[in-house]
Design a protein around this nucleic acid. Structure first.
Length: 327
DNA sequence: AAGCTCCCCAACCGCCAAACT
DNA sequence: AAGTTTGGCGGTTGGGGAGCT
């Protein structure tokens, strides 16, 4: 009955991933694409459970990921979106294409929560009780409690277009994806080499499957395959967006959304059917296709999405300006 | 230099809906 | 239809680096 077990519990390695493991995983995914995580440990020989492989890929190795150095713009967006959506990190991450939900969650817990609390304390001591259910000082958005709200909690922040999972809108651009993939692994190895040159040398000798050529794979040749396996997705507001308790401004936007629901195409219908049979020989045609593909994978944002991004950018920066003297 | 504390973040854990047989 | 596993999510933890004494 049911599926076979994803992996045996005995002999499963835990803890930090080594560069060797990363390279094996990335190479495998570049060849086979993300998904079917159950078969990854078996096929790669990695002594990791499928879940660990998936997490490593989505949170660290996946192309297009930017790490650290959150800009004021991003900070503002996170604050804004957290106030709007609550601790829906996956949903928030869908509006910050280069960031993972884990990264945003960490940044919120380690930096922003404190900042907000401090800010609220400065404004009014009684407001600072719980920043996770906080109100945004600019918009007064009060998200309902998401705890126990399974329908809302399990809502996907991505609309799957091509039937693949592990989606992220950052994958909309194959070119940047290519660069980022190379960057991520190179950076990883660079750090590893720098931190322990001796250990690196020893490890390379120990692992016969990792000849120097394998390391070179982190360069262009390695990432080439990644381009072909890139999947395209777009962020989508969760169905439960209407449940938000909002101020007048926001309610009017929701009304606008509702009014336009009948006229809006869904994500599924907005994507034109596959037209790869067309002639792409000429450069012009190619450019046209590139443009078309970009539009196809980045359909126009809904009014709410546009508003959110615009407002987040503007208000976020404004908010950070106000916050800066306090910190 | 050594010891201590604090902080950050990668990775794990547990839960749940969906998928699968 | 029922039982089992996967994939995805949010919460939490602990190793290690940074800063302080």
């Amino acid at each position: 009955m049911g599926r076979p077990p994803c992996c045996d519990k005995v002999g499963i390695k835990k803890g930090p991933w080594t560069p060797e493991e990363d390279i094996i995983l990335v190479s495998y995914i570049q060849e086979h694409g993300p998904g079917n995580w159950r078969s990854v440990p078996t096929n790669t020989g990695l002594l990791r459970c499928s879940k660990s492989c998936r997490l490593r890929w989505t949170n660290y190795l996946r192309p297009g990921i930017k790490r650290g150095n959150f800009t004021p713009h991003e900070e503002g967006m996170i604050i804004h979106l957290q106030a709007l959506l609550g601790n829906k990190w996956a949903a928030i991450a869908s509006y910050l294409p280069q960031r993972t939900d884990n990264d945003i969650k960490n940044y919120w817990n380690t930096h922003l929560k404190k900042k907000i609390k401090k800010f609220q304390s400065a404004l009014s001591p009684h407001m600072a009780s719980d920043s996770t259910t906080s109100t945004c000082t600019h918009h007064q958005f009060v998200p309902r409690s998401y705890a126990g709200d399974d329908h809302h909690r399990r809502g996907s922040s991505f609309e799957v277009i091509n039937g693949h999972s592990s989606a992220h809108p950052s994958l909309n651009s194959p070119i940047s994806t290519y660069a980022s993939s190379t960057e991520n692994i190179s950076r990883l190895l660079e750090g590893w080499m720098r931190s322990s040159p001796k250990a690196t040398k020893e490890k390379l000798h120990q692992n016969s499957s990792l000849e120097e050529g394998s390391i070179d794979m982190t360069g262009n040749s390695m990432a080439v395959a990644a381009v072909t396996s890139v999947q395209c997705y777009r962020p989508k507001l969760e169905q439960g967006g209407g449940e938000l308790v909002a101020n007048d401004e926001f309610e009017s936007i929701l009304e606008y959304e509702n009014l336009n629901d009948d006229h809006h195409q869904t994500t599924d219908t907005i994507i034109p059917s596959d037209d790869h049979d067309h002639d792409h020989d000429h450069d012009h045609d190619h450019e046209m296709k590139m443009d078309h593909d970009q539009k196809k994978h980045n359909p126009p944002l809904s009014f709410l999405e546009k508003w959110l991004l615009d407002e987040s950018a503007a208000q976020g920066e404004e908010m950070m300006d106000q916050l800066s003297p306090i910190f």
